[in-house]
Amino acid sequence: MAYYRPPAKYRWHAGFVAWLLHRITGLLLILYLFLHEWLISSLQSKSSFDSAMAVVSSPLFKLLEIGLWAVVIYHAVNGIRVVFVNFFHAAERSNYNINVWVFWIIAAILFVIGAIPMAKGLFY
């Protein structure tokens, strides 16, 4: 099977890292969606639902929930960057790398804003 093999090596500039993380977080999110919907749909009775919710309200799962928030917010904010790259000239030679960093900082700020109430939930 003949297919295109890029001749150049990958270079670890910001845009490449952003793209790689977008792929990884995207894969994590669709796998999480499959798991999430399967679990929720299997909890049809009050007793099974409430006992499962007691398990996922443990500190370990609260930490994983903060991790999920990080994955979601990265994929969401970088996805907006992709739309800006595609439609609003955010990938010009003069602005590309700085744009990546701007969106990373926006993602970091939104992550912290969401993670604070979630982290408080750890200590209830």
Partner: peptide, 9 residues
């Protein structure tokens, strides 16, 4: 509702 468990009800 941070800290509360989402119940079935």
């Amino acid at each position: 509702a941070p800290g509360t468990i989402p119940t079935y009800n």
